[in-house]
């Protein structure tokens, strides 16, 4: 993500400074801390918050701009479908490993519809966990993902994969519809 720029009084620009300690990362780190200890006591919560704040200060990150609203029911559908697909993809790849005939692959370009960095990252990570594909290259300027797809016998199967990847993006877009940004607003 390109840094947000602030303009100084004399007209020069500098990258915006973000607050290092943000509430949501602290909450996540606290949950991880409690999961590691496997218990919830007041002392553990206090220690967890302390450690989380120290981690945020030591490794400051810019806040993630989700840029979309969340619709819980379609999101639940996406997550359920995702788990089914993980199982299917694992069995498929296991089949490719165990059979005797040589495997043919393809590198397929998928032009995403979304312009949001967050959604592009989400689609990329879901695609590399599910249907026999690994992201080889991502181009942010054109929102293109290049995926290495295993077990593609011909060009028709590559087209089929592209349709499947775009359908996954559409499902995700329905679950996390993007909020109109200032640029797109009339």
């Amino acid at each position: 993500m390109s840094p947000v720029m602030r303009t100084r009084r004399d007209g020069s620009t500098r990258p915006a400074r973000h607050r290092a300690v943000q509430p949501i990362p602290v909450l996540w780190l606290l949950l991880v801390w409690l999961a590691l200890w496997g218990a919830v006591t007041p002392l553990l919560v206090l220690g967890g918050v302390l450690v989380a704040v120290l981690v945020c200060l030591a490794f400051p990150l810019p806040p993630i701009d989700l840029g979309s609203s969340v619709r819980p029911l379609p999101l639940l559908g996406v997550v359920a479908r995702f788990h089914l697909d993980v199982v299917r993809a694992s069995i498929e790849v296991a089949g490719v490993v165990l059979r005797r005939r040589p495997v043919r692959n393809a590198v397929v370009a998928v032009d995403l519809e979304t312009t949001s960095d967050f959604l592009m990252t989400l689609v990329a990570s879901m695609l590399s966990l599910i249907p026999g594909s690994v992201v080889v290259e991502a181009r942010r300027s054109t929102h293109t993902l290049y995926l290495h797809v295993i077990d593609v016998p011909d060009a028709e199967a590559a087209e089929e994969f592209r349709r499947m990847a775009l359908a996954l993006e559409q499902r995700l877009l329905r679950a996390l519809p993007p909020r109109p940004t200032d640029r797109e607003r009339p």
Binding site: V86, S90, V93, V97, V103, N105, S128, G132, V136, I150
Partner: peptide
């Protein structure tokens, strides 16, 4: 499997499940 990219598939998917 024959090459690195194909091997990455084997190293990620069945292993995660």
């Amino acid at each position: 499997l024959p090459d690195l990219l194909t091997r990455m598939h084997a190293a990620t998917k069945p292993q995660v499940l």
